[in-house]
């Protein structure tokens, strides 16, 4: 009987080994990247990559489409900015504070939205995020349309000067890796196993005694917290938290990044975020606001022709 059991898990043993290699290669690339590519571009891609990965945890692995994730990115950015600029804490504490704020906000959003599914869930998250946008626009503390400016990067642990772009890059890279690890672990945990069961057959999961709303709420809070971690880090990189981050455009962009890169794939959101950030950087001064149109076209093409997204299509190729 034991041979049967080990036989059963054999199929799963092969896959992680292959993706472990991919992990190591990407990790090594991440370490040397700032010597080959503009660190600022890399930091932006990593922040949005983490943001999209957090979003993917919810859409790809729980099946919940949140249309309000910009609120978590943005609020964490403001909180981190205030803590670092006005309360004078070190950058890592700023990130922690931003993450905690996003997690709390995620809990509130989740409590209000989680009982609804599909379009209703999306609409409630959108409505709540719009309220956050309104507050950010009106409040003096956020700097309104000017944004929250002049956030110093400070010294990491009070020791390392973050104004050095390479040092800052490694902080961002570390944050990304932590966030990425949390997501990976969550998916491959006892908790993640129940999430999978809920996604596959919710009534059956209930009939086995699982309070599915609780599982969804926890997943939502984790996703919000990590989106916030990305937002707080981004504020340090650009020394600015702005209304763009809480705008619904950003909530839409993260959907685009995730679908483009590959829903429910490990590296898809990072790939999607990198492509979008590259396009924004390359095209912004050449075509102006046509960027939006181009991204719209890409989105439509992606949905019509590459349903699985970049990484999803690649995986399908490798399997064949």
């Amino acid at each position: 009987m034991n041979t049967q059991a080990s036989h059963a898990s054999h199929g799963q043993l092969v896959k992680p080994t292959r993706s472990n290699t991919v992990f190591l290669v990407l990790f090594a690339l991440g370490l040397v990247a700032p010597f080959a590519v503009y660190p600022t571009f890399l930091m932006k891609a990593l922040c949005f990559g983490l943001f999209a990965s957090a979003f993917n945890l919810l859409l790809g692995y729980v099946g919940l489409l949140s249309f309000g994730h910009a609120a978590f990115l943005g609020v964490a950015g403001y909180v981190c900015g205030m803590m670092v600029r006005d309360a004078g804490v070190t950058p890592e504490l700023g990130i922690v504070a931003g993450t905690a704020a996003a997690a709390s906000l995620g809990w509130v959003f989740g409590k209000l939205a989680i009982r609804r599914t599909g379009i209703y869930f999306a609409m409630i998250t959108l409505a709540l995020a719009q309220m956050v946008f309104f507050l950010a626009l009106q409040m003096k503390a956020t700097g309104g349309e000017d944004g929250f400016q002049g956030v110093p990067r400070g010294h990491l642990f009070g020791l390392i000067d973050m104004n050095n772009n390479i040092a800052m890059y490694y902080l961002v890279f570390a944050v990304f890796c932590i966030g990425f690890f949390v997501i990976h672990r969550t998916i491959h945990s006892p908790f993640g196993q129940i999430l999978k069961a809920i996604r596959e057959n919710e009534p059956r999961a209930i009939s086995l005694g699982y309070d599915v709303d609780k599982f969804k709420l926890i997943a939502f809070v984790i996703s919000a917290a990590l989106a916030g971690m990305a937002g707080a880090t981004k504020t340090l990189v650009f020394q600015l938290a702005s209304l763009t981050d809480v705008h619904w455009h950003t909530s839409g962009e993260v959907v685009l990044m995730t679908l483009l890169g590959g829903l429910a794939t490990v590296f898809g959101p990072l790939a999607g975020a990198t492509v979008i950030v590259t396009l924004q950087n390359e095209l912004a001064d050449k075509v102006g606001s046509w960027v939006t149109v181009i991204m719209g076209v890409i989105f439509v093409l992606c949905v019509l022709m590459f349903r699985r997204g970049i990484v999803g299509e690649l995986q399908a190729l490798v399997k064949r």
């Binding site: 969550t186 491959h188 006892p190 908790f191 993640g192 196993q193 129940i194 599982f215």
Partner: peptide, 21 residues
């Protein structure tokens, strides 16, 4: 295992590896 898992009391443990199952 999904049926058995609740008895283990780790169904909310998102920080533990899957092999604990």
């Amino acid at each position: 295992r999904i049926g058995l898992q609740r008895k283990l009391g780790t169904e909310f443990h998102f920080w533990k590896p899957e092999r604990t199952l």
